[in-house]
């Protein structure tokens, strides 16, 4: 299902591994019923694994949400929808924070990633070296990114404050203020994500219809017009897709925020993921945590449908 996206964006003419030529649809099947059964048998281990470690936990979470259950003590009592009543207000608070974080941390890397890809698509010396080096922020584990930016923003010895002091400005504890903390986690996540988007756009730019661009240039189209009517429509599909994925992943981000702010100061950066962790492993309230998860799951269903529809539309384009 994803292979069509892959097709559009293959960059390297000599990939390490062969890339798909078709996504398999419409291929004549010469397979017997026995082979069909065998094919399904091959899928069974993965299906069982997925059912046990992903689907079953999701479903059992729905049950847990109906009970009062502590992390520290065994046993549980049925309380119906009480957990939901207790956390629904909190859920919408955290949802707001989560949306602020995930939308900002999607828009910023998309802008930077697209800009960098367009700039790096120019002819220049050392282009490939720059491309390679710019992948480094993506490569680092999330915790490393979070520690690094905590250190950069550190209120006493951070390099940002050091530079501020050099020009005579006073030190500020950026991570200590609600707005500063949110900005800091968004910047850290942006720094971590933009290479991914850069690569996708660079890949899309490799398959620009050169002849169309030439013809447009001969017909007197300006550089802006060529970008507006040829290049931009060519990259907007892949960009929309990665933006959607980036948003979904940011929505569930845990490590950046947990390490940098722990959700603070106050609740100012407490997203759903951090809150769910705090409920379960800070307040030991598994029922409330599960109820939070169920409401989140409903939301995820809606968001994922958006992604799947977008994916399908780009595939059939």
């Amino acid at each position: 299902m994803q292979s069509s996206v892959l097709d559009e964006t293959v960059v390297d003419p000599v990939p390490l591994v062969p890339l798909p030529e078709s996504n398999g649809r419409g291929r004549r099947s010469k397979i017997s019923a026995g082979d069909r059964r065998f094919g399904f048998m091959l899928a069974l281990p993965a299906i069982l694994l997925f059912l046990v470690i992903s689907l079953f936990p999701l479903v059992s979470g729905i049950f847990t949400s109906l009970f009062k259950q502590s992390l520290l003590r065994p046993g549980r009592t049925f309380v119906g929808l009480e957990n939901y009543g207790n956390i629904v207000g909190e859920f919408f608070d955290r949802l707001g924070t989560t949306l602020i974080f995930s939308i900002s941390a999607t828009i910023l890397p998309v802008i930077i990633g697209v800009a960098l890809a367009l700039l790096l698509n120019s002819r220049m010396r050392g282009r490939n070296v720059i491309r390679g080096l710019m992948m480094l922020p993506w490569l680092l584990p999330g915790v490393v990114v979070a520690f690094l930016w905590s250190w950069i923003f550190n209120g006493n010895y951070g390099v940002i404050n050091y530079l501020l002091n050099m020009v005579g400005a006073p030190s500020t504890d950026i991570l200590g203020s609600p707005l500063g903390a949110m900005a800091a986690v968004v910047i850290a996540k942006t720094w971590n994500s933009f290479p991914w988007i850069m690569v996708v756009v660079l890949a899309a730019l490799q398959t620009l219809p050169t002849e169309q661009l030439e013809a447009a240039a001969l017909d007197g189209a300006t550089r802006q017009q060529r970008f507006r009517f040829i290049s931009f429509p060519h990259i907007i599909g892949p960009v929309a897709l990665v933006a959607m994925l980036e948003f979904i992943y940011n929505f569930g981000n845990f490590d950046t925020i947990f390490v940098m702010t722990g959700g603070g100061p106050g609740d100012s950066t407490t997203t759903l993921a951090v809150d769910l962790y705090n409920l379960a492993f800070g307040s030991y309230d598994l029922g409330a945590a599960s109820a939070m998860g169920v409401l989140w799951l409903i939301l995820l269903g809606i968001i994922s449908s958006g992604y799947l529809i977008l994916n399908r539309r780009l595939e059939t384009r």
Binding site: M1, S60, T64, Y249, A289
Partner: peptide, 21 residues
């Protein structure tokens, strides 16, 4: 479709259940 959606499930949603299971 199941595995495509599987890619989108955040770890936090599985956390409590995985811990219990």
């Amino acid at each position: 479709l199941m595995f495509l959606i599987g890619q989108l499930i955040p770890g936090a949603l599985l956390l409590v259940s995985l811990y219990l299971i």
